[in-house]
Design a protein around this nucleic acid. Structure first.
Lengths: 297, 297
DNA sequence: AATGATTGATGTGTTACTCGCATGAATGTT
DNA sequence: AACATTCATGCGAGTAACACATCAATCATT
């Protein structure tokens, strides 16, 4: 049934204006072209919709039935198209990313500053989540891309490394281990160790890294987030192994950082996105800026 | 916004089948032609709807939003087109006319018989109504055309006369007036006269016809329909002036008919239709058959 | 890792369709 | 009867949509 939207528009406008000539003018068509459109619609339907002479136009019974339906169809289409374009525009005016907390404050501030300076009207929405949640968010297209750990990846996403860093010891300045320049993992055996839960990507990496050495630290405290670990260390409740980027970078009144060796456990943080994902230009640009600023050479 | 229905169909089918090639085959298009349609839709909306590689097709976020809307639009259009065609087909399979009662049984039986023999599947629907209702029915397109009186016409309808006939006296066989071969209107003055209401077309014609003679019958009974008049005459309650076609055509055990003169009041019954009205072929044919069978030479 | 089958995208030429212009016939109005 | 205006038709021009040929990309298989 080869009906076209322009046919419906011609019919609706003609029925409303009661004039082929006037309707044609309104929709920027010549009168013969409009007449042909109406004739084509009537031929396709197999029934006249309008009764007309050179001086008078009226709807047929079928035309009267069809007119509100045609109007509704055209209205619904216009609404749909406008809605879709609004969604698209809203999406293209916003960057959505998911990020593990330890990386958010390390990677993003500089790049966000530069990005917002270049694109003042583009908003950046950061979903702060664990490594697995970041991955799910990307897979489910809830966000454009993510910043997460190597271990938490998936065959259906592409990983682009940004930074590789070691886990280090975090303890209070007045802790006995703070007197050593370098701490070995086995040195921790005699101290209360604060760890993160099994669901954490960091925990997975640590477990895998330590498996080779035969040493298994005895966890005394288990928390959900690394940032809570740091809080407990500061409170003097124990020591923790934390990624370097989550530690204070300079001298700290309470917290000391020491290299953890034998083994040195490394983690890689990078960008994950779905291959072939068509990001908005803004998201593509932000993604590029992150790579440019942070990519490991 | 130059979106076309074929664009929507291409998009919906491709999203459902997850294959350009397969979708193209289904809607009888080549794969490049379908690809171009999808590209045109995406260009018009200014946003991609599908992410695709040569081996994998998925909806974008905007595409996922748009797909149910596009489906609904196409479904609504198809429903509308089928409904319109069904109405048109039903109308073209049926003749609808309105007819004053006195004429229905006089004009229609023969023509209906001939018509139904020629067109066995076409149904004929007769709306039995007063002269004014017949006219309204035609003007409001509730019926295709009507059979009514001259007096009940309108500048917007065309009248084609079928039969011109006189009003005659109807009385019981044993009534004194039955003894006269011809009755004059003034003879009715001494007898109870049964008339029809002022809303009746017949009443209007009678009033106008008698106005010239100066004689005004004194109504003793007033009824709504002529057929009721005949019933009261038969019951011996009085006499009535009725159109010839509504009287028994041969000898009747109870009812006598006599010419009414001085004046002779005539009425014309004919077809009314809207000029330029596009009737279905069946209605046109029936209309023609009525004219052929009954038209006054 | 190499190879092959398959698919979406692009270039190109052809065809069909839509358009505007010119004009005719019909229709109300004066 | 004459005139102005409108809908319908004939016709030529231009454009859009199509299929075909082909390329590049992508997975699956070996």
């Amino acid at each position: 049934m080869n009906v076209e939207l322009d046919d419906l528009k011609a019919f609706v406008k003609t029925a409303e204006m009661r004039s082929f000539r006037a309707a044609a003018e309104t929709i920027h068509l010549s009168q013969p072209a409009l007449t042909r459109r109406i004739q084509k619609l009537e031929a396709t339907l197999g029934v006249p919709l309008l009764e007309r002479t050179t001086r008078r136009i009226e709807l047929t019974a079928v035309g009267r039935d069809f007119l509100p339906r045609a109007r509704r169809l055209l209205d619904d289409l216009e609404t749909s198209l406008l809605t879709v374009q609004e969604i698209a525009q809203r999406r293209s005016g916003q960057v959505n990313i998911a990020c593990i907390p330890t990386a958010a404050y390390y990677f993003l501030p500089d790049v966000i500053s530069a990005f917002s300076e270049a694109y003042p009207s583009i908003r950046v929405r950061i979903v702060d989540a664990g490594a697995n949640e970041v991955l799910q968010g990307v897979l489910n297209r809830e966000v454009d891309f993510g910043i997460t750990l190597t271990g938490a990846d998936d065959p259906d996403v592409a990983f682009e490394p940004l930074v590789e860093e070691p886990f280090m010891l975090a303890c209070r300045n007045d802790h006995p281990l703070a007197e050593q320049e370098v701490v070995q993992w086995e040195d921790l055996a005699e101290h209360r160790f604060i760890t993160v839960g099994r669901a954490s990507g960091n925990r997975l990496i640590l477990d895998l890294g330590l498996a080779k050495s035969g040493f298994r630290p005895r966890w005394f405290y288990e928390v959900q987030h690394l940032s809570t670990s740091l809080g407990l260390v500061e409170a003097g409740l124990g020591v923790a192994a934390l990624p370097k980027m989550s530690l204070p970078s300079g001298p700290h009144p309470l917290i000391a950082s020491r290299p953890l060796v034998d083994p040195v456990v490394m983690r890689t943080v990078g960008l994950v996105r779905r291959p072939g994902a068509r990001l908005s230009p803004a998201s593509e640009r932000f993604h590029e800026m992150l790579l440019t600023r942070w990519r490991t050479p």
